[in-house]
Design a protein around this nucleic acid. Sequence first.
DNA 1: TCTGGGGTCCTCTGCCCT
DNA 2: TCTGAGGGCAGAGGACCC
Length: 459
Amino acid sequence: MTGDQHDQLAVAGPDELPILHVDMDAFYVEVERKRDPALVGRPVIVGGSGRRGVVASASYEARAAGVHAAMPTARARRLCPAAVVVTSDFSGYAEASEAIAEVFESVTPIVEPIALDEAFLDVSGAHRLFGPSPEIAWHLRSAVRQATDLDCSVGVASNKTLAKLASVAAKPTVQSSGPEPGLGVRVVERAEQIAFLWAHRVEALWGVGPVTLRRLNDIDVVSVGDLAAVPIERLVAAVGTAHGTQLAALARGIDDRPVHRGGIPRSVSHEETFDTDVRDPDRLRGEIVRLADAVASRLRANGLVARTVAVKVKYPDFSLRTRAQTLAEPIQTPRLLASVAHELIARLDLSTGIRLLGIAVSNIAEASAPPVRSSAGVGVEALTAPETQLQLELGVGRHFSGESVSSRDTESGPTGDAELDRRLADALDAIRGRFGGAVISHGAAGLRDGAPGERRWGR
DNA sequence: TCTGGGGTCCTCTGCCCT
DNA sequence: TCTGAGGGCAGAGGACCC
């Protein structure tokens, strides 16, 4: 431990700075480098390699050439011709992420995952075992390194906003000469937090994206210090009530959001951008079935059901349209999901072709939990067993390829088609569990390169 | 030679019900 | 019986995050 690190430990009291933000350094790139050591020291770009792919992560060497996340891969290649482009493999990153999560949970049970490569931790209950927060931060860094051979940066502060900004300050930087190591851990003491906060540009704050930034710049707000000085009425007029009041609080260092442990997701979705715009109705029907299968698989794998189904399309001019429907009964199987999605997509104009198709479900509950009642008072009996879930008011399509729900179908009983549907989904799950996701798919979807919903640019 | 995927949250609008 | 107000919810779109 360096002298600076000891100074930090001496200043921070155990309860002063309960929040840690841990962020892995160039996570996807470093996972790829563990798999292929030949990538070490070379500029690396991880992302979609197809015609419409974008950069998911870039090594610090590639960042020095101007490459950044969300940039089209084709442009990144031009900026950094020496870079090795590796296609994303999210299952591999998820594995590393699980190992990191285990390290976090060995320190505190209050962990809020933000993404595969970052999380907030509330360590207020961990001081007796692990010491003051800065000491916990250094311990986490070395424990993550030991478990995964990967580096992370840790921010330590009194709240989430400050901890997040602190972890950014702790990260390696990119100089013209190449990557420079960062602090590793940055502690923001209470006495310095306002000065630290106000020195940041306003876009560093959570919730300030391109649109909000433009609106803030319009009222001469550039730094967080500027933001703190603006009368709240002016701020609210510029960015709206909820956003304005939240930003005003954040700019004053006020952020009382607790660290939430991960729970049931609010929504589950799967979407895909096609290599070329799709106009063919048959092709679209197949894609709907494939996407529905992907979403349903994830619901079933996590023991969840959902009541609202939405479809999303992106047109060639990048305009987006969504159509959604909330059902009286929660659903979980691919055939039901595809049926509803087919009905929704029929309400959209597809004559110009589309570049993206997505299916999302929300209103999610555990399969064993009593479902939410609709505003119309349509009651749903509590679902307590998989068999009970089959008692769906909504009927099922006649064909596995996803024919629309009809009134005649609605009259079908709790067994019959629904039972077949469940058994079919169970069988698919079992086969995929044993042989992998790519071995079987629905007839209308056809066999593709990967499992349902698996990214087609996967390894 | 364009612009991914998987999420969350907020706002606005329209509808239904009281 | 009609009408308006207001609450709650669904649906659609948008902004933002990593």
